[in-house]
Design a protein around this nucleic acid. Structure first.
Lengths: 347, 347
DNA sequence: CTGAAAGCGCTTACAG
DNA sequence: CTGAAAGCGCTTACAG
């Protein structure tokens, strides 16, 4: 059987209260008794039982990561978020449980009601999200990775879409591109209808094109390789003057490139393609490897935990954090070729 | 404040023991008192505190999923495993905590020592894995997703590599292929040196080719798109007679196809490519979309939990489970073209 | 069928 | 600086 504080106390010849004080460093203890206790703990291989601590202190030091599985996620893989959130939690001596539950809020209420977790980290937040209201009513601390449309009073961390889009556009503009297309994801599926990233990316794109006297063109396609292939044809037909495409969804970005290939369009000679707020792994798979703005997935997981813990520990509620992606050069963007752009036509 | 069992007991005019009996359905209670108690619970919105229950019953109903993050995983994404494991846990009224810790076993010991979890599910198991010995010594129930070389006495679920490879080879043989190459992953990185899937895939490949009087050729490349590109050149140079390739790593499979493209080799006209034990998402991205044997990632997560829970609940320790992948047709495999295969040479 | 009571392994006022 | 004791919210023999 594992040693308890009682065992430690007996061996050190003190009360369990004193043992607790040295473990938690919560009261003055003379160096001598401290040493005796520490020795006893080492001898017995003592490890504090976190369940008993949780019950007594009314703090479990467990937080929940809530995400609707099998859906989209703001840039980066879910695994990245989970892993970085778990790491950050662990460093603060917290545990992370995962609740891959639907957007339906009943389940959330039931789970929170069990009293297992001190706080909740919400992922894949929609522009209007029922879960946020539920959590407010449940009176449990929570933070968001992503954000609703109205963020007043909320703790959140999210992608800085403005800066990220600016990085992509600056890169293209520097290469001489003036005719661009934003290939965004379809909003047909219900879960994409209130999808913040698309809305914010598009707003940034429109703002930046306007500021530069450029014409904004927004196209949409299904979030799949097939969707991207189909978009390649549409793009060639509907926006033949475009010299550069910004692709918001990584699966369709790959499909787009494959489709352009088949149509005989060379990348980047005929058309530059840049993937925005996606993963490096996926971008590396295309031929040529894509230039992209890498989504800050790993970072956001940790930042979300930080925001939540700050609230849990009662510190100053932290300011919202927005993180931009990072521009990584691939071989899919290049200087505008004045001639080709206008000449090429679909077959 | 949340209602406790004491509140319920008072309202129903019974003792908290009786409340406990109806909640857990652990002793006979007259229908009348049961009803009174259930009404009281509903009125108060009572939810049992799982922490108190855990302390009293010495069962936390929490299990840990242990995986070294940022490393490889047996087919399928880590997110799939986590999600399916969490779902399966939740259905059995368990919670899943994630411990993305290194292979170093000290951390594992410390975490288990906290007494938070009833059992451990180990992912990304190596052929020889120090963590297995550690867990044995810790005297905590555990199960493996994947398996060590020596599996005696272990509870595990894993991919059925024999059947999965057979599916792939049967498909190729049916199309008339006799000259095949297994493109496996490099084992240079230490974490791949004791990587079971490669060893088992290769063993199955060698067995099947032998049974069919075919010559086995095994090549290796880095687990990345770049590795696959480089392999495309090597393949064309070193095994020009090959008419089909089985690709074990999904990133390099995509790179291989891109590389073959650049070398002017048509898929599947000149060369068939089949991706083995990988994800559909990745296969769909290539041009043409790859035929593949889909890794049973989602299923294995749930099966692993099942195996662990069976042991936890003291039922008959379940037989090891091996699950084969599923063959999904893409457009990257086709009938052998007798002429081309031998004629084509690298430029 | 139901209840009184001990106990799970800690934390935390309260005394001294 | 240290200890005795109550209490966290349950489960579970043990009685009746």
């Amino acid at each position: 059987m594992a040693a308890t504080m009682k065992d430690v106390a007996e061996r050190a010849g003190v009360s369990i209260a004193t043992v607790s004080f040295v473990i938690n460093n919560t009261k003055r203890v003379t160096p001598e008794t401290r040493l005796r206790i520490e020795t006893a703990m080492a001898d017995l291989g003592f490890r504090r039982n976190v369940v008993a601590r949780a019950l007594a202190s009314r703090r479990t030091r467990i937080i929940a990561l809530v995400y609707p599985a099998l859906e989209h996620r703001i840039g980066g893989s879910i695994a990245d978020f989970i892993t970085s959130a778990a790491r950050a939690s662990s460093e603060a001596d917290y545990h992370l449980v995962v609740w891959p539950i639907s957007n339906d809020a009943t389940e959330l209420t039931a789970l929170v009601g069990q009293g297992l977790v001190d706080g909740v980290l919400l992922m894949e937040v929609q522009l209007e999200d029922a879960r946020v209201e539920v959590l407010r009513g449940l009176d449990i601390p929570f933070a968001l990775i992503g954000r609703t449309r109205d963020v007043s009073g909320l703790d959140y961390v999210d992608i800085d879409f403005d800066t990220s889009m600016q990085l992509a556009m600056d890169h293209l503009i520097e290469l001489g591109h003036r005719e661009t297309v934003l290939l965004s994801g379809s909003q047909e599926k219900i879960s994409y209808r209130l999808y913040g990233p698309y809305e914010r990316e598009e707003a940034a794109y429109r703002r930046i094109t306007e500021e530069n006297g450029m014409r904004p063109i927004v196209m949409r396609c299904a979030q799949s390789a097939a969707g991207g292939r189909e978009a390649a044809a549409r793009l060639t037909a509907e926006a033949p003057e475009a010299t550069a495409v910004l692709a918001a969804d990584e699966a369709s970005a790959a499909g787009l490139v494959a489709g352009l290939h088949q149509l005989g369009r060379r990348i980047p000679a005929d058309l530059s393609v840049i993937s925005v707020l996606n993963s490096k792994e996926m971008a590396a798979v295309s031929d040529p490897p894509l230039t992209l703005v890498v989504a800050p997935g790993l970072e956001l997981g940790a930042l979300g935990v930080e925001a939540l813990l700050r609230r849990l520990e009662g510190g100053t509620p932290q300011e919202p954090v927005l993180r931009a992606g990072i521009l990584e050069m691939g071989e899919s963007t290049g200087p505008v070729q004045r001639q080709t752009a206008r000449r090429r036509r679909p077959t």
